[in-house]
């Protein structure tokens, strides 16, 4: 026993190293899986607070561009409103199903394999996990962690991200993933080889999940090839959003989410 203690004391540096190193490795392994440690991420109160302070300075640099975007969106919405046909009954149902909450991006990354954003809205603003996040141009990601005042978004530029989308022309649907190579190109998989596709076709959300409503723009087809087994396409989709430069976003709250989830439970 004495010798055992002596051995530990003699090699204490090595054991400390081993312990800390294995903690770090286990955290890394955990981060490569979908569900992350609850406390230690950037929606943590202190960490997000520091990002908030930093953002309160840096947001002034983007004011001109943000105003431009808002003007563009306003003009588009106005023209939609003026050209609207008289069938309001369907739209009034839609308005109740999806509610939009505006948010500001405090932290954004796009160079790693697993990218996350931090937003300034949290449980206090009734933002919960699995709410979709979009901008006026296209989709951004899905909320995966929330604290009282902040929330973290699993970006579509994340190897763990899986979002159901469809082709606008043919209505065939597939899964949107990311291969980490470029911040403006994502991959659409699981489209059958017999589907006719062309470069430049639009890709939109399918609306099958309760996260995103249907027809939110995603991007256009940049190039496509068959996969190794020659039966499915791997399609490179160029995003409408510039993911490197996000400031104001909309969080989509689906008020029917519980009802839809209950319905799916019956299915299984």
């Amino acid at each position: 026993m004495q010798q055992l203690f002596n051995f530990f004391i003699k090699n204490k540096t090595f054991f400390l190293f081993l312990m800390l190193f294995s903690i770090a490795i286990s955290l890394t392994v955990q981060s490569h899986q979908f569900h992350r440690s609850k406390l230690l991420n950037s929606s943590n109160h202190i960490i997000a607070g520091i990002y908030a302070a930093s953002n309160s300075v840096s947001q002034y640099f983007h004011l001109v561009k943000e105003n431009q975007l808002l003007l563009e969106e306003n003009s588009r919405l106005k023209s939609e409103q003026f050209n609207r046909k008289r069938d309001l009954s369907f739209d009034s149902i839609m308005e109740k199903t999806y509610r939009l909450i505006t948010g500001v991006v405090y932290k954004n990354s796009y160079t790693q394999a697993t990218n996350y954003l931090t937003l300034n809205k949290g449980l206090r603003d009734s933002v919960k996990e699995d709410y979709g996040v979009i901008t006026s141009k296209g989709i951004v990601g899905v909320i995966d962690k929330t604290s009282t005042k902040y929330s973290r978004v699993l970006s579509i530029l994340n190897t763990n991200s899986r979002i159901n989308v469809k082709l606008k022309n043919t209505k065939h649907f597939g899964t949107l993933t990311w291969d980490t190579k470029s911040a403006d190109i994502v991959q659409l998989k699981d489209i059958q080889e017999l589907v006719k596709i062309a470069v430049g076709d639009s890709v939109i959300t399918s609306g099958f999940s309760s996260i995103f409503p249907a027809n939110v723009p995603v991007g256009t087809i940049n190039s496509f090839r068959l996969n190794d087994t020659k039966d499915l396409y791997v399609i490179d989709v160029k995003l409408f959003n510039d993911m490197t430069n996000l400031e104001h976003v909309y969080i989509i709250k689906n008020t029917d989410i519980n009802e839809l989830e209950n319905l799916n439970e019956f299915d299984e």
């Binding site: 190293f17 800390l20 770090a24 490795i25 950037s42 790693q112």
Partner: peptide, 15 residues
């Protein structure tokens, strides 16, 4: 790592 949401990668390399 906590700031950059990178798991434990920086900690492991630094240690």
């Amino acid at each position: 790592d906590v700031f950059l949401d990178s798991g434990g990668t920086h900690a492991a390399a630094s240690v």
